[in-house]
Structure formats: C-alpha cells, structure tokens
Nucleic acid binder design. Structure first.
Lengths: 117, 117
DNA sequence: TTAATATTTCAATAACAATTGAAATATGAA
DNA sequence: TTCATATTTCAATTGTTATTGAAATATTAA
C-alpha cells in the first residue's frame, strides 16, 4: 500500500459516525449487520447512514449483500489489515531507537525487554 | 481512547501530504527533522507545510522544538500507539471467527495456524 | 394489487479543509 | 545594525464533506 491508497481509507475512518459504524461491524464479525440495525444502534438518520456506508464501501472498508429486504453490511478485515500494515511499516525500528516497545512492532521484533512491573 | 478522540487523529493522517510528513518523521526517528528538510523532501510550499504541521501537532501526532533557527519536528509514537491500539481493540476476536490470522491480533492471540506456504 | 418496511438517491444548505502569495516574526551571520 | 535564512501567520479563494427532508426504489406481507 502507498500513501495515495491509505489516505482515502483513513479519511473514511476519520469521521465519528463512520468510525462507530465500522467498529460495530467489526464487533458483529462475519455475520454483519443490516443497515437498519446500525441506524438504530447509533441513532443516525437513514439518509446520513446511507451516505456514510457508501463512503465506507468506496474505501473498501465494508461490503454489502442484499438479503431479502435488508442490506447486510460487513467489515472488510483484509482492507483494515492492509491499512494497519502500512501504518506500522516503518514504525518499529524508529520506536526501538527511542526505547518504546511499540504496539506497532510485529511480534518477532518485540524487544526482550525488562518486564513491565 | 474513544471514537471522539480517535477521529481527529485519523483525520490528520488522512491527507496525503500529512501522511507523508508523519511517515518521514517516523523514519527519522528520535532525531526528528527540521521543517525545511521536510519541505525539501516532499516538495511542499512553506505555508502549506506549516499548515499541515500545525494540524499534526494539534492531533498530537508530532511535537516540535526550536533549535537555533530551525524547528525540529518529531513523530509522537505514544499517540500513534494509542491510535493503533484503539483500531485493533475489537478486531481480533472477529477476525478469528472469519479465519483471518489478522495483523490486528496481538501476539498472544495469534492462532497456531497452518503455516503460510 | 395495495400497503408496509428497508434502504438509497437527490437537491439544498452549511460547515470545513487545502492552497496560494504576501507579509510578519525569529534567529543567526556578516 | 543590517542582511539572509527559516518558519509562521494572514486573507482570499476554491473545493470537499456532512446533514436535512423529501422523494424514489426495492422487497415482502396482506
């Protein structure tokens, strides 16, 4: 992933309602949630919800499937993982230098540090 | 961290120039970089750079220190780590359900999966 | 078919974000 | 002090994003 790909994904998460929507879908897992359930859970007007879901879909953070008269939305873990990888790409080496055992370091790179007390 | 805290941090990363600035500072590590070096490296006009650095500082993703006539900027790993933790909070359980060995899972939760070929 | 529910689209408005060039401020060097 | 370099601020402009209510579309139930 490159900056130019990551920026719109970040932008689509950078809005409180959308971030809540995405997180609710992450918690819902593979089963996903119908649009209406999200609207109820988050107290968002239908038109606004639809607008935000469209943004998230465009960013490939969610996908949707029509099921009867409901539209089921699901979080796209593949996209989120790619984004997280991008964000943590150069983080570990630098964090190590400043003696931070960073959450951004992949497991293999975790320093065998003095245990936190 | 909560949605309302994370959204402005994400917003400040959700702009290609700022994302590049932040990444350059991550790579630079604890030594940081003067504003001018960033301007040169990224080809950004001084006023624009200053605007973006201000946004990043407001989001607590960077801090700055005057050194002679230069202003040195540094990435704030603490903020980035808090953001990454927030983003991965509910990711692992859900990702596991969908048989994704997610980058978003903390080490302890990584599934003992069939090795990738 | 008609009515009810779920979701999306549309148009209008309001708020916000990014870029520009010029001017201001701050520091260090001559 | 005067000049040069580094950075920030300002005002104007432009473009983008979010919210609203109303209307349109799609599916199911009566």
């Amino acid at each position: 992933m490159k900056t130019i790909d990551a920026a719109p994904i970040l932008a689509s998460l950078a809005q409180p309602t959308r971030l809540d929507i995405f997180r609710a879908l992450v918690v819902a897992g593979p089963a996903g949630l119908p649009a209406g359930a999200l609207a109820d859970a988050l107290g968002v007007a239908p038109a606004a919800l639809s607008f935000h879901l469209k943004e998230l879909r465009f960013a490939q953070l969610v996908d949707s499937e029509q099921q009867g008269r409901y539209v089921i939305y699901r979080a796209r873990f593949d996209t989120m993982n790619a984004l997280l990888s991008f964000l943590t790409e150069n983080c570990c080496a630098a964090a190590s230098e400043s003696s931070v055992n960073a959450a951004c370091c992949p497991p293999a790179a975790q320093k065998k540090s003095r245990r936190a007390s």
